[in-house]
Structure formats: structure tokens, C-alpha cells
Design a protein around this nucleic acid. Sequence first.
RNA 1: GCCCUGAUGGUGGAAUGGUAGACACGAGGGACUUAAAAUCCCUUGACCAUUGCGGUCGUGCGGGUUCGAGUCCCGCUUGGGGCACCA
Length: 950
Amino acid sequence: MEYNFNDIEPKWQQRWRDEKTYQVEIDKNRPKYYVLDMFPYPSGAGLHVGHPLGYIASDIFSRYKRLRGFNVLHPMGYDAYGLPAEQYAIQTGQHPAVTTEKNIARYREQLDRIGFCFDWNREVRTCEPGYYKWTQWAFCQMFHAYYDNNLQKAQPIDKLVEKFAKEGTAGLNTACSKELSFTADEWNAFSEKEKQQTLMNYRIAYLGETMVNWCPELGTVLANDEVVNGVSERGGFPVEQKLMRQWCLRVSAYAQRLLDGLETIDWSDSIKETQKNWIGRSEGTEAQFKVVANDNPATQDGLEFTIFTTRADTMFGVTFMVLAPESKYVQMVTTAEKQAEVNAYLDACKHKTERDRQAAHEVTGVFTGAYAVNPITGENIPIWVSEYVLAGYGTGAIMAVPAHDSRDWAFAKHFNLPIIPLIEGDYDLNEGSFDAKEGVMKNSANQEINLNGLQVKESIAAMKKYVTEKGIGRVKVNYRLRDAIFSRQRYWGEPFPIYYKDEMPYTLPDECLPLELPEVSDFKPTKDGQPPLGHATRWAWDEKNRQVVDKSLVDHKTVFPIELCTMPGFAGSSAYYTRYTDPHNNEALVSQEANEYWDNVDLYLGGSEHATGHLIYSRFWNKFLKDIHVVKSEEPFKKLINQGMIQGSSRFAHRVSGTNKYVSADLLAADGTYQGTPTDPIHVDVNFVSNLDMDVEAFHAWRPEFAEAELVLNADGKFITSAAVEKMSKSKYNVVNPDDICSKYGADTLRIYEMFLGPIEQSKPWDTAGIDGAFRFLKKFWNLFQPEDKSAQPTSENLKSLHKLIKKVTGDIEQFSYNTAISAFMVAVNELTSQKCSSLAVLEPMVVLIAPFAPHIAEELWHNLGHNTSVCDAQWPEYDEKYLVESTIKYPVQIGGKMRFTIDLPADADAEAVKAAVLAAEDCQKWIEGKEIVKFIFVPKKIVNIVTKG
RNA sequence: GCCCUGAUGGUGGAAUGGUAGACACGAGGGACUUAAAAUCCCUUGACCAUUGCGGUCGUGCGGGUUCGAGUCCCGCUUGGGGCACCA
């Protein structure tokens, strides 16, 4: 019988569907294992050959774990809300729900052909009300929670209300937008609105004022990449930095837990590092600087402001201060004389985006006319404003130490401010600052503290202690991690279950969720600058009757307007992993029982591009869910593997410039010219090029402009193309569709080949050329099972091949080294073929071993061997060391008259034991044959030198 | 600037500090065939010797540790990725 994948594969895929082979339920008698892929955004282009890479890898592991006796949860779903569907809707008027539905159907069809063991019964889609109900629900929980820094966890906001009523803010230690201070009496006297405004300062989901790119002309917020040179990409209208009220998540409250958690999870160093940098923990000192009174009234009664520094040791070298342009202190300190100049500068800054400011790297700034007192030296130092100081980090104000900070140095040079060196050494302060955190201090002493002679690290500690004791400052940990902006002025996303009463937000009652996304007449923003939901007519909340009603009924007494923004893409993807464990539950995000059993993800596969997005938000979201007792684990993903990208391998036909003549690449000169005329490489479709050899007829038929093209072939009558590795994309004609591969070679070959390409974590180009090797392997594997009589006793050679393979494949799968596992398979199959192995005792385990990689062929062979259960329920074979014993002597090396051997022996073996073992070993006898042994020399570790005569 | 990664044949890639290049592709040669496809066998890092056996050099560059380094350490060159006026 021939290996006919076209019959085998659809047959088994149908059977798996019919028999629900991959449907799983809680089974307390078996250990669980949860394998998850990052769910895809279903784009209109469909899957290319790069997308399934991670899915295949996780599928192999799922099947392996199942064969090992685990109850494996391996679900799949769709991240269905997002921008491309909405852009497409704006252009064509087609409802995003319709295009999304279509794309999902296409994805499913493609995925099904590859033979994955997903439990589709657990599919989730982020755009379905039954799913986003729980996204909205989680948001409401965050709205009704605050973060207690002492307990290091989220708490119900009611607790805070109680506390405020009893003792005000006394002794409060919570995450908040700004430090507030009021008494219980003051709180109790607050109006309802004032109370709500106050609580907003503490909520984990809160309305906050944040800097955004605002384009007044377009009436919308723009993303950074929509702004070029300070004007909008579309229309060229000016864009400014503006404080806007947006929904935010207080991710920063969890900064320390997000950092600590990294130590407990099995992720790659590079992702952990990226997250550490993103969180950006920085231990330093906050210090108060008093402003010298001037003609600005705000300075009259002892105004002071706070700076943050990690270099407290350099306070003796502070020669000026700098405020961020957005700092509220700018207006408070500027003198009347400098007012106009400062305002002009602030205005100029306002019209630059954050990106422009970072790109320019020009030294700009303006003197406020004010002075502050250096609390260590007592000297008056000027206060400047400059955009190199960021409002969003630390306190938006710095102490400048030009001798030891390159940015301060550049500023001081430009504006001619004094520079005082504080560290011994032969650096030249005319050339640049000395930024290194090392060396011995100098010029750093007053009557109370003397740092001279200390190391930098010692003096940081000494200064921290000093400023704390003197009440000038305090030790402070800062994080770069900022709160996540959670509002989008978009249509195709989750609506906020929020209505506004007296301008303050209130959540819909939990039992009224989901708040379904309304239909709108137009997906564009409205003319008055409101988001697309402004077009929705039935979009008001009737508080009394607890239902959505028509907008026209809004009276601000019982019927209120509903929030118009929607949630961002990461909202729906932040907790989907836990929803899979209980996807049909209408009473809870996940039941206690399901979470208790399935817990969180054991193995997560996906691209590293989500390092600072989804993978941070999910961790934050999960920690919050843990705080409110919905899930039991602190971290959502125990082990993470980042699969590399599959790049395209493009092909080019070389066209003689200015003609319609194409030349085979091997006829070109080294500089790419043909008979002295330059040529242009033109992308041609990789699907009609085999290796570099182009199908000439397919080329002519491809597109009209090539029909009449003149082709110059090489001596063999072939047309050779050139190649380059690029991103896989339609415009480069290097996209390979997995469907085509499945039709031509079968899904099993696709799976084997994708894994054989190289390590999963590495990016590599796709080149269909090598796939023949994988296909040949499966044919050989198939042929191994063709002998009619398989009842022979296994030979020791057979068993050796088999057990070597079991050991290798098991070890390799555990380490996700699938490419080497497949290599071992190829070797074993060649060995067994040449041994003419016809023993069931060897062949049966071989089928189980191949099952994770090539499930269809395994299933077919398994049934041909007389089984009537799925190979999925077979047992993974164990290897037996006794078939694997090899000579104890390895690697004989001759040096001069000596032979040197490495031998494997127990560490405590004595000289005699070593000698006996060496002499007994076959390899050794061969080497010393006919030579007289003069002596043995034992060198450390496992080395034996044998000195022979001659 | 800082952090993370990688660099091995014509290509993709193997090598717990122990015979570098497994396995696969491609290429060359051969068998079978009227022919092709399919299949099988041999060669395939470079250089020298090929009427023997074999020898020399080789894992981006320069040092070091070691009996022994692709692998460990130090200093570079370079590809890829991330962060960035973060005080």
C-alpha cells in the first residue's frame, strides 16, 4: 500500500470531530496540564505558513503530555476586536461583525486541515457578549477596588469609604494618583460628588488626566504613529500635548509584584529583562529644595518642591535645578520679568509631540528668574525649565549635576552654568561628564557631613541617611511603569458599563451585564468630536428600570448618558486563558471548581512582540483576579516559549533596465549587470519557483505584463532567480499558504517540516525546497509497516534502535528540541529499514512515538495494527537502559608516546578499578594492541594516560 | 548610550568542556528504466596527497583558563531584537 495522505488525513479529522476525541472535562483522577497558544486576531489575509509554527509546537507537546497520562487542556479562540476590522468598516461600510465572522470561518478551515487537537468546544471570541460580559465585569471590580500598599493587594473600595468616615486619610498607605489629606469630619461633610471625585484618586480603574496627542482640527486623539513632525499624518493639522480625561488602570500599583513574580516563572531571560526594563525599578532619594522668595506671590511663604535622584552622593555638585515644562511649579516660581520668555517656551514645547522631543535631542531651555537653595551647600542656584526633564517620571523636577550627568552637562555647557567635579580621576570636563557610578569622592564636605575619600556607593548610602535624618528628604523607590490608558475613541471594542450622573461615572449593576455594543449608522467619529458611539441612538441608562433606553430620554435624573469610549485591544486578551477553563459559565468568569482543577497555564506559546503589552497586562489582570479571590495563582503563565518568526524567502527575476527582457541570474556579472547594462531585481511569486529554478510558463501566465516578456535562459535552458530573506508579505510575493502544502504533501509533512526547520525560538526563513526530506521520511516510515507478517521476534539491533530513539525523543520533547527529535527519527527509521525489522514489539511503540508529530499517519497505522481506540489514548513507551549500554571508554587521543582516555566511572573508583576497566574495554584493547604498556598515569577528573613503547 | 540575542559547510541546522559539521536540503557521480517520475547506492568544510595508507588548516577576530574550548573567562568586530533625555 502506498502512503496516501489525501485519504488518511480527512478521514481522521472527521473521525476526531465525530468522536469528540479532543474534548476534555475535569477529571480528578488524572493530573491536569494546560497548554495555550496566544489566540490570533483573524485578519482578512488568512493564515500563512508562519502562523501555525507555534500551534504545531504546542500541539506536539499537548499530545505528548496526553500520551503521558495527563488530562490536557488545549483550547483555541479569537481575539476578534480590533482596528483593522473597523478601518475596513469605515472604508466599505461593512459591519465589522460580518467581516470578523467571515475571517474566523476561514481561519478555522485552515487550522482544521493541520490536524490540531484543540478542544473547540471551549472556543472563545472576545467580541461575543457572553465573553465580554466578563471583561466588563472585571473592569467593574477594578472600579470598585483600591490598592492597599501595606497588604500589597487590592481591597474593596467600601473599606476605604468606611475608613475615611472614621479616621480620614490618617495613616493611609495606598496607591493613588496624588497624595490627599483630609479628616473624617471633612470627608463626612463632602457632597456625594466630592466623595466620588476623591475616591477616583484611589480606584484601580479610574478616570485620570493624562497627556495625549490631541488634534483640535480633527477633534480626536491620535496615536504616536499618526503624528508626523508635530502635525497630523492625515490633513497636516497641528497636534498638541493635552491633558485629557481617560479611563486608566492603576497597573503601577502592582509594579513591585510584577517585578517579584518574574523570579517565580520559567520565561526566557530576554523577555524577563524586557519586562524588568519596562517596569524600571529605581531606588533613589527624594529631596526638598526651598525656593528663594521673589516677586512671584507663590514664593512668598516658603515654597518648596521635591526632586528625585539616584545620585544622592552628588548633591554637593548641584549647580542648578530644572523643571519639566508641564510642571505646575513653573508658574509658581517664574518672576514677572521672565514671564513672557517662559510662556513663549512652554508654548513651543506644547506643539511638539513626546516623540519629537525625544528625537530632536537639541538643548533647549529657559531661565525662570527664580532661585532655590541647595540644602547641602546653602548656595542659591538658578531654576530653569527644559523639555529634557519629563513630567511623567519622578517628580517632574531634577537637581542638575553637570559634572556627573551627561544631559546636565550638555545643558550647562550650552547655557554656561558652573560645573563642579566631585569624583577623583583624570577625566576632562571640557569634553564631557563623568557618568560612571564609581570612584572616590572629593569636594564633598560641609560642617556636618564629609563624603571625601568615600566610594560612590558608600557616599550614596551616607547621604541617604543624612538627608533622612535632617528631614531634607527620604528614600524612595520609583517605577517607570505607567498606568495603562484604557479608553479608545473607537467603535469595534467592548463598551464601558459606565453611565454618568452629575458628571461622575457609575457602573451598571453586575447582573445587568453585558452592556451590548449598539448598532451605529457610521463607524467614524461624530462631527462634534465624540467617538463613534456618539452615533448610537439607543445609548442611555435608565437607572430605575435598569435598562438601556433611547438617548433622547436622558434627563439626568433617572436616565443618564452612557460612556462613549470603548476598551482597548488588550482588555479582551487579558483574562481569556482563565475563561477557557470554564467557557460556558454564565454565573461567573470561572467557577471555583474549574479554577481549582485547571488553575493557570502550564505552557504558553507566542511571539515575543507582546513582552511589554499583553504579557504585562495579563499578569496585572491575573494578580487582580487573585486579590478578589477569583483565581488561586499569582502568575497566569508558568512557562513561556516565544516562537521565532517565519520569514519569507523572496525570489527575483532580473530585468534589464528599461526593457521587458529578463535574464537568468547566473548569466549576470558580479555587479548585477548583463552585457554592461544594469538590471533590476523584480519580485516573482515563490510558488512557481523551485529552489532558484523558475517555471517559465507560469511566469508568462502570471500577470499580463510578463506575457510578452523576453527571457534569456542559461546554457541548461533554465531560468535562474536570485533570493533574499524578507518579511513574509503579499506585496513581496513570498507568501506560502499552508493549504497548498497540505494539498501537495499532507498536514503531517507540513508539521514535521515546520518543526525540522530549526529551534522553535529562532526566526528562520521558509523555503519550501527542503520539504521533500520530510515527505520522504514519512513515506519511509509508512513503508516500515508494510510487511504482511509482523510477528518476528525483535533482534537486539532492533531493540537498540528503538530504545535509543525513545530516550532521545522523550528528552528532546521535554526540552522543546523538536528538530533534533525528528533527526533521531530519521536515523532510527533508516536503521530499522536496513535491519528489515518486522517485529510488532518494535513497530507499535514507533507509532506512539510519532503520534505527537504526525497524528494522522500514526492514527492510520495504529488502526492497521489492529487497535480500535485512538492512538491518543495509547501509552508513551519507556526506554530500558540495558539496550543502551555502550563502551565505557571514550575518545582515545594520542599525545607523544601516551594514549589518553576519558572513562565513565563512579567518582570514588580507585586506581586499580580504573586500570581494570580500561584494560577490559574493547576500544582500549584495540588501541594498545601489540604495544607494551609502560605505565598508567592518572590525571584529575576522569582522564587516564597510558604510556606505551613505540 | 543601556539591556538581551545570535555569528559553525553552498543552504537550514547538530554537538552534558571530550573524534566539529549529526539530520535534512542542494550539488556531483552511479544503479534500475526504452524514457521520465519514484526508489536505492557513493561523494560532498578547505587545502595537499590521491598507484595506497594519509597529512595540514578549520566554528566572526585577539588573548586566557584547561590534558583538551564551537562550548568557560576577558577584550573586540558584526547581524537581529528591546528600552531610552527615566535623573
